[in-house]
C-alpha cells in the first residue's frame, strides 16, 4: 500500500471499494471502477486480477451487443504495465465488439510485448472471423489505426508488407497511422524520412481534428525535422507542446544532458514561444 500514489477522489472511492464494486451487481459502478483503477494507476495484484476477469464479462451489454466493461478494463490494463495482462488482452483481440479490439490493441501497444504481434497482424489481414465493424461511420471493419500503431511500436518489421497498402486507405487517420508505423519500422533513415515528411505535409490538413491526430503521431515518433512545422500548425498550443515534448525526449534519449544537443535546444526554443 505504501508505495501507491496518494489517492484523492471526490467520489471517495478507495482501492478496496473499487475492487469490490468491480465484482458487484451494479453495472454502472463496475464500469466506473474499471476506469478508476486505470486512472489512479492501481497496479496491485488483486486489481490486475479483477480487471483481467472483467475482460471476459458477459453481463454488461449494449443494445448493439457491445461490451462497455470489457472496453474500460482493457484501457485500464494498458495503463498498469503488468505483463500478466498480455495474454488475456491478446485473447480479446478477437472480441466481436470493435471498441474492445481497439482498446486491447492500444493496451498491448503500451505494454510493449511483441507476443501480441501475430494476433494483431491476423486482425489486420482480416483472418479472424466473427468480428463486427465499428458502429459510427466510416464503419471500419477493424481498428486499423490502432492495430498499425501497435505493430509499429512493437517493432514488427515483418509486418511492413501488410502495413504498406494502408498508406492509401480512404480514411486519413489510418493513412497517418501507417506513415507513423512505417517511419518506426523502416531501417534506412533516408527512406524512413519520407514517411515523417508525409506526416509534416498532413499538418496542413483542413480538418482541425486530423491536424491534432498528426501532431500526436509526430510526437510519438519524435521526428525532429517536424519541429518548426509543429510550432506553426493551426492547433491548440497545448497539443503542439505535447508533440514537441515527444521530439525533445527523443533527442534527450540520444544526448541525456546536462549538455544538450543542438536539436534539443532548437525544440525548447520553439516550446518557449508557445507557452
Amino acid at each position: 500500500m505504501s508505495d501507491l500514489p496518494d489517492i484523492r477522489d471526490e467520489g471517495q472511492l478507495t482501492i478496496e471499494t473499487a475492487i469490490a464494486n468491480l465484482q458487484g451487481e451494479d453495472l454502472g459502478l463496475r464500469v466506473y471502477a474499471a476506469w478508476w483503477l486505470g486512472r489512479f494507476r492501481v497496479n496491485t495484484d488483486s486489481a490486475i486480477q479483477v480487471l483481467i476477469a472483467a475482460l471476459l464479462d458477459e453481463d454488461d451489454r449494449t443494445e448493439a451487443g457491445g461490451y462497455p466493461l470489457r472496453r474500460n478494463a482493457a484501457r485500464a490494463l494498458g495503463k498498469l504495465a503488468d505483463r500478466q495482462a498480455v495474454a488475456p488482452l491478446i485473447q480479446v483481440l478477437s472480441c466481436t465488439d470493435f471498441y474492445v479490439r481497439e482498446a486491447a490493441a492500444k493496451a498491448l501497444e503500451s505494454l510493449g510485448d511483441p507476443a501480441a504481434i501475430p494476433q494483431l497482424l491476423g486482425l489486420l489481414r482480416g483472418e479472424i472471423a466473427g468480428t463486427l465493424p465499428a458502429l459510427e461511420p466510416p464503419q471500419l471493419e477493424q481498428p486499423f489505426d490502432a492495430l498499425i500503431e501497435a505493430l509499429g511500436t512493437l517493432a514488427a518489421v515483418d509486418a511492413i508488407p501488410d502495413i504498406q497498402p494502408f498508406l492509401d486507405h480512404a480514411v486519413p487517420r489510418v493513412q497517418y497511422a501507417t506513415a507513423r508505423a512505417l517511419y518506426q519500422l523502416t531501417p534506412e533513415p533516408e527512406v524512413a524520412r519520407q514517411y515523417g515528411d508525409q506526416l509534416i505535409a498532413a499538418l496542413s490538413n483542413q480538418d482541425l481534428q486530423l491536424r491534432r491526430t498528426v501532431l500526436a503521431d509526430l510526437g510519438a515518433i519524435g521526428y525532429l525535422p517536424a519541429a518548426e512545422a509543429i510550432a506553426e500548425t493551426l492547433a491548440e498550443n497545448s497539443l503542439k507542446l505535447i508533440a514537441l515534448k515527444g521530439l525533445l525526449e527523443r533527442e534527450l534519449a540520444g544526448t541525456p544532458g546536462p549538455d544538450l544537443s543542438a536539436g534539443a535546444k532548437r525544440v525548447m526554443a520553439l516550446m518557449d514561444a508557445l507557452l
Binding site: K245, L252, P258
Partner: peptide, 19 residues
C-alpha cells in the same frame, strides 16, 4: 530541480536555463 524534477523535458529546460 536537476535532482528532484520528475519530467526529463522540464529537467532539460532547467539545464538550458543554468547554462
Amino acid at each position: 530541480m536537476t535532482h528532484e524534477e520528475a519530467s526529463v523535458s522540464v529537467k532539460a529546460r532547467v539545464w538550458q536555463a543554468q547554462q
